[in-house]
């Protein structure tokens, strides 16, 4: 049976990247958010946020809707059902890892 640190190393990097995890966590707490909101929330630059969103969209975890509000372009982002399940599962794994690393000792191997 792998120890908690091996499990930690095996986490899905697509989701576990700090910026992408922040984006997915935010989207899991709402129905949808726009690009400006995620920009302020994550503190990323325009380019970095676009790049992270493109990777998440490519993986089928988020869905982007590009539209105009008046004359201003506005991108609305929401989790897909797969994305929601993925981020929920990821936080469950992290919670359980946090507990097991706390209880872990070299003797328990």
């Amino acid at each position: 049976m792998p120890n908690p640190f091996e499990e930690l190393a095996a986490l899905d990097r697509l989701v576990h990247d700090p910026a992408r995890l922040a984006i997915l966590t935010a989207l899991a707490a709402c129905r949808s958010a726009d690009f400006t909101f995620l920009l302020r929330l994550t503190g990323l630059t325009n380019g970095n946020l676009s790049s992270h969103l493109a990777r998440l969209e490519e993986a089928g975890l988020v869905q982007l809707e590009r539209r105009f509000i008046g004359k201003r372009p506005n991108t609305l982002i929401q989790l897909t059902s797969r994305g929601r399940a993925t981020v929920n599962r990821h936080w469950k794994v992290l919670d359980s890892l946090r507990k097991s690393t706390r209880d872990w000792s070299p003797d328990s191997e």
């Binding site: 707490a29 709402c30 726009d34 400006t36 909101f37 995620l38 302020r40």
Partner: peptide, 11 residues
Amino acid sequence: EHEFGRALATP
């Protein structure tokens, strides 16, 4: 809305 964007609440 202009400065902080939008986040629509869950149902």
